[in-house]
Design a protein around this nucleic acid. Sequence first.
DNA 1: TAGGTCATGTAATCAGTTACATGATTTT
DNA 2: AAAATCATGTAACTGATTACATGACCTA
Lengths: 232, 232
Amino acid sequence: MKDKLTTDNASGTMSVRYINKKGDEVSVKHILLGVLSWAPNSGYGIKSEVEYKGRELGWGRVSFGSIYPQLKKLVDEGLIQTLHTGNEGRKTKIYELTSKGWTELTHWLNQPPSPPEMRDELFIKMSFWDTGSPEDRKSLIHHLRSRLKENREMLSHFEEWTKNDLSAIGEIGGISMDFIIARIRFDIEWYEKMVAVMNQQSNIPRQDPDQLFEKAKARRIEALRKDLVDED
Amino acid sequence: MKDKLTTDNASGTMSVRYINKKGDEVSVKHILLGVLSWAPNSGYGIKSEVEYKGRELGWGRVSFGSIYPQLKKLVDEGLIQTLHTGNEGRKTKIYELTSKGWTELTHWLNQPPSPPEMRDELFIKMSFWDTGSPEDRKSLIHHLRSRLKENREMLSHFEEWTKNDLSAIGEIGGISMDFIIARIRFDIEWYEKMVAVMNQQSNIPRQDPDQLFEKAKARRIEALRKDLVDED
DNA sequence: TAGGTCATGTAATCAGTTACATGATTTT
DNA sequence: AAAATCATGTAACTGATTACATGACCTA
């Protein structure tokens, strides 16, 4: 269980770094522990909590297929326990943290967080746009507008929530919530700006010292032309 | 291969939505295709390209363990081909896109991108901070300062890159790069602000209509006290 | 000649999703 | 009585990482 120092060939930084021991990374486990720290809850309830509060809060999504087995595992590990099972007709299991669970949560919180991992398909596409789809910007503008719309909806969702919702937000949670909202506003401004820039047909390549784009363009045309000839 | 309309029990939105057909989502596949659209490259070369340019560009990471098998698969599918193999002593395989590959890339670019998926452990932790670790803000301030440092380093990395680097950036790629840099600046400002706020010991809970935090605190103390008694 | 970098590849594993099965309760 | 929602769970799968194996070439 000790950290291991290794030449990390697989990481591609081609240097030496620490391989983390298992157990401290982000996972469903800690989200479950965290949500249960707010209040005892059921698997189903946790899911809706994550859906509702965790949206764009940097939580990602969690499916039932990982919640229920994980809850069982946490009970086995003694981190949570059932508060009461199916008091009414509906067989709902309500879980709460054990003292071991509280300790584990606190310990995890004090561990340094790993850098944010994000994958934004829009950005990925934009980085390849110039070679892959140089002629039609219409499609990209459409992508941007959809993103803009999504973000506007998200913004009002959060604004509504912070104003009207009765559920608890602590001081720290509130600060991060303010951050999230400010960032959505920032993003919206930028998406608007990008749409505007994109609309004024410019088409000046920014940097192409080795004529990489020119060559790519040529290769692309060549490849597609060859295709047409082959089909005859 | 047709879209299927389903009552989506597993998604937890507990509503009806479209299940996407496979093949259009973000994946290593399209990153490989995209990097190869810039210029023919090897598996190893693609990896360093992703490390270097893709850092915080919304690409995520890619490991050799997924690159090499995926390259093989793409050859089988006829989307890429080896340009030349190991001309010198070193057995480097250089791949390039086929016409089918260019078509696939262009098609993928025109598909609407899925919403960004991100998981930021720092935010997750902050949302649970108030219940899990109410007493010591020191640890959180430390997390924030580390994040601040990381972002400052990232900023200078990107600023250096756009100024001095000779590699190609197209118009669109340049715009998204500007966005990324602006967002890092925005984040830095906010992290600074948060550290400042955190330092002036306030400790006023923001919203707690149902005394959820009070109760959580009590449960926590109770659970931890019980633990101590049991150990006797 | 030893250590680093360049370079490709595979087997084991893993965290998580998807899809399915089941059934009670509530709403229309 | 049908449809939607609440609620739990499992089996199959999947995309990816980790860890390992191998070897050439480069430079201090």
